[in-house]
Design a protein around this nucleic acid. Structure first.
Lengths: 340, 340
DNA sequence: CTGAAAGCGCTTACAG
DNA sequence: CTGAAAGCGCTTACAG
């Protein structure tokens, strides 16, 4: 590796000061156009690499944004991340990603790392059980936080997520309109806002239709394909013989449909199944999954924009911003057919 | 936000020098044990946050490692990333992730960003068409690179990937042993080493079994579920009426099986399908997918270890390190059954 | 075992 | 339009 090229290397080679070089490379109007061109040309020729650490130490802006989710391998978060990525790219901000896997410790370690790196902000879907102190730790050290997908009680930071209660009621109403009366709810946990809100929306929709709510028709827990797959046995053996399942998300729904198929029944014919999120793969599942669009792209885009705006000095309103979900009717739901 | 706490804040409050504080916080044996404890206690009490940028500027080590893949939403890369993550976590290295989506420009921008941030190294699966200069740019500026999943011609950097040619021959031989003779190959592109090597392995296996290779039985292109799903139409309309498909990866295989189901045929019975990678979801697909384990966890772990070792000073051997694939026989393959 | 001082590579008032 | 100088917050020889 050749001798490190820095501002002073360029300055000396051109007989100018580092101040002029610095200004020129950042297109300051203070530098004459032809001086600027000469400097840029020379920087390229010497293979100059801008040292962001040094600049950041001086300016206390790092150009780094932290993003922490439960697990990016989950396409729901993956789709949010993609939207964040493209929005940050446009503003030349680099993001650092971490999965917390709902470990509060892992999440805190990550927040501390971001603070040490001088991260300009953080976009997060907080881990289950996140203490308020961890959130204020960020804010108090000048690192604004934006929440996505999950709300946190007692925190009025800007939060972007879908209207879960309304969305799940769309799915439930759809099944009711097809004649289903014994409808199970599969997946999700009361430990997250999405779990609570979606169960509540399901309960509300049933009540509004005059259908009695049977708590035993709830199978809480599953949140992945694997989980949905395994829940199929439980679901199929429920003594109430439900004819339909409202799933907490698409992954659970797809897993459940696979499990139902393995048992020799045909999802969408023998048993109706709805998902939630409208992941890209929902449309190509077999059968194509009836689900609720949860606006991941919108959530990611708005959250990134909110953070960028805040970094630019404007203060977006705090509190929860709900994105309106929409029904996507496909082949996994159909008219009620009695269970044998 | 309170006044920023730095080393000198602690030093003054205790009547010590910043040198002592710095050493104590890093557990240097040069500092007396009780002095150290007092310092650590005070640092905590004041809410001190270590400034990595300043330290990194001084030491020229950042504790940051870059990771760039085609797309982490692809579970194949996601599984590699997980292994890298857990290995780096153990060494308290932070990773910065980027998708290149096979855009050479996006990849180069990311490499430049890493250089600016003083990244200690990079683990990458190079974008299609990556010029050698982009790789040497990293190395020449003191940022060692480790390749995963894809090889690059003319580059002898350490590379960790599966033995694609051997692996696909396992899948092909399995189908041949079930009596299949008209076997299509679906997905992949000649622009990547995996695409070339897997097609070659398929061709070799057929030849060795004395089966004539029909280039029209290759359907190149698909690399995703969506792609495999769409390829089903083409596959089913092939005049040679193949009874089995060797797919380039699990995603294509799962998509293809969905497409086959939509057409009213039963994958695993009417048409045998093999995947490649053994993603977590292969086992719960319907039918459960016969596939080839590609050792993602191993690839990620070894690549991360190789980089960490290099950072620690030891020089692992350059060149390609092949991980041995293994066959996973499930329900998506069965005895040949003539196409009608 | 602890301290004084230099320096990592930038940017930013301030002068001219 | 350009330059001299200070300073961001650390670490690291070097002294003692």
């Amino acid at each position: 590796m050749a001798q490190k090229v820095k501002l002073s290397t360029i300055a000396e080679s051109l007989g100018l000061s580092t101040a002029t070089i610095s200004l020129a490379l950042r297109d300051s109007p203070l530098v004459a156009a032809d001086t600027r061109d000469k400097i840029k040309e020379q920087a390229r020729a010497l293979g100059y690499i801008y040292n962001r650490r040094a600049a950041s130490l001086r300016t206390s802006r790092s150009g780094i944004v932290g993003v922490v989710f439960h697990d990016v391998m989950n396409p729901f978060y993956g789709e949010i991340l993609k939207a964040i990525e493209s929005e940050l790219d446009r503003s030349r901000q680099t993001f650092i990603l971490s999965n917390h896997y709902d470990s509060v410790e892992k999440q805190r370690t990550f927040i501390e790392t971001l603070l040490q790196l001088g991260s300009d902000g953080i976009i997060m879907s907080p881990a289950i059980g996140t203490p308020i102190e961890d959130m204020t730790l960020a804010e108090e050290n000048g690192m604004p936080a934006i929440l996505v997908a999950r709300s946190m009680d007692g925190v009025d930071m800007p939060t972007y997520r879908g209207d879960d209660s309304y969305g799940i009621s769309l799915a439930t109403n759809h099944l009711i309109s097809l004649g289903h009366r014994t409808i199970a709810m599969v997946g999700g946990t009361d430990q997250t806002s999405t779990g609570r809100d979606r169960y509540q929306g399901y309960v509300n929709a049933l009540r509004k239709a005059g259908i009695e709510v049977d708590p035993n028709l709830r199978i809480p827990g599953p949140r992945s394909k694997q989980g949905g797959f395994e829940a199929a046995v439980h679901f199929l053996s429920l003594p109430q013989k439900p004819t339909a399942a409202v799933c907490w998300n698409d992954l659970v729904a797809i897993g459940l449909m696979n499990g139902i198929s393995r048992a020799g029944l045909v999802p969408g014919v023998d048993i109706s199944v709805t998902g939630y999120d409208d992941l890209e793969e929902a449309a190509i599942a077999t059968p194509a999954l009836t689900t609720v669009s949860n606006g991941q792209a919108e959530v990611g885009r708005l959250a990134a924009r909110a953070l960028l705006d805040r970094l630019a000095g404007s203060h977006e309103p705090d509190g929860i911003h709900l994105i309106k979900p929409e029904m996507r009717i496909r082949q996994s739901t159909g008219p009620v057919r009695p269970r044998v």
